[in-house]
Design a protein around this nucleic acid. Structure first.
Length: 270
DNA sequence: CGGACTCCCTGCCGGC
DNA sequence: TGCCGGCAGGGAGTCC
């Protein structure tokens, strides 16, 4: 169930265990993901040494000297390290076997993907037009303000547009809008500069806090129990439609906006 | 171009 | 109990 913090947690969790190791084998049990898994994946990877693991938006990048493997976890994907020979479970679609450790891709809904990009991964078509990373200084209130000018779209789908900023999914869009006191259905173009400053700060805050908490379950995660790294009980609005607002106790309103569940407080968010 | 909508897929939950 | 519709955290592709 990956949003940016889960992808970041995965990145940090797997990196120390596989960086510098050689790929020994690739097993593709189910090549039909969001896009077909490249048929030549074994030829591309076996024998290559992994230089490092990084993240761009919700894409994980396994970097080799010749290029990068881009992995997206979709809605239901996860990566785990398992011991060589561990029996695959249902929906364990792909193994990347390193010396001593197997990186196993699991994805019931198969909305995830794997792509190979020679050379600089940033040139891949899926990454080329992505907006800034939310936790980097390049993304700030001024950026949001400039990008939102004259946009008629509601602010929530605007925030979830990966060309505006990457990594803000449905959960964190709801949370950040609540914390910033901004109604999700407001037109992006109606936001004031101060609105945008608040919004950018709360996006950074909620994502960073979630990453910090994901870190607390890293050991379990790497050990293979796959515990998700975010804490549902800390969410202020997402999943709480009809329940009292944590600030004013008015029941939270739940609507559909751009085909996604949206929860907000009609009193605290304007 | 912006913005709304569709679809990829399995699992699960609530209603009947 | 079983079946069925609807919904789930993403996001590319299509159409207007």
């Amino acid at each position: 169930m990956p949003e940016l913090p889960e992808v970041e947690t995965t990145c940090r969790g797997i990196a120390p265990h596989i960086t510098g190791r050689k790929v020994k084998a690739i097993v593709v049990r189910q090549p039909s993901l969001r896009w077909p898994v490249p048929a030549d994946l074994p030829a591309l990877l076996v024998g290559r040494k992994l230089h490092g693991v990084s993240r761009r938006g919700k894409y994980l990048l396994l970097g080799f000297s010749e290029g990068s493997l881009l992995i997206h976890l979709g809605m239901s994907g996860s990566l785990r390290l398992v011991a060589p020979g561990a029996p695959p479970q249902l929906h364990d679609h792909i193994d990347i076997a390193f010396s001593g450790r197997v990186l196993r891709y699991h994805d019931p809904r198969r909305f995830g993907s794997m792509h190979w990009q020679p050379g600089d991964p940033a040139e891949h078509f899926l990454l080329a037009s992505l907006g800034p990373e939310p936790l980097e200084p390049l993304f700030d209130g001024e950026w949001l303000f400039q990008r939102s000018r004259k946009r008629q779209q509601a602010v929530k789908p605007f925030l979830m547009d990966s060309k505006v900023v990457v990594g803000v999914g449905n959960i964190y869009a709801n949370e950040a809008l609540f914390m910033a006191g901004i109604k999700p259905i407001r037109k992006a173009g109606s936001l004031t500069r101060n609105n945008c400053l608040a919004l950018a700060e709360h996006i950074k805050f909620v994502l960073q806090r979630s990453i910090d908490q994901g870190g607390t379950t890293l050991r379990d995660f790497v050990g293979g129990d796959g515990k998700p790294g975010y804490f549902k009980q800390q969410l202020l609005v997402y999943g709480r439609g009809g329940e009292p607002c944590t600030v004013c106790a008015l029941p939270l309103k739940e609507i559909r906006l751009g085909q996604r569940t949206t929860v907000y407080c009609t009193r605290c968010q304007r």
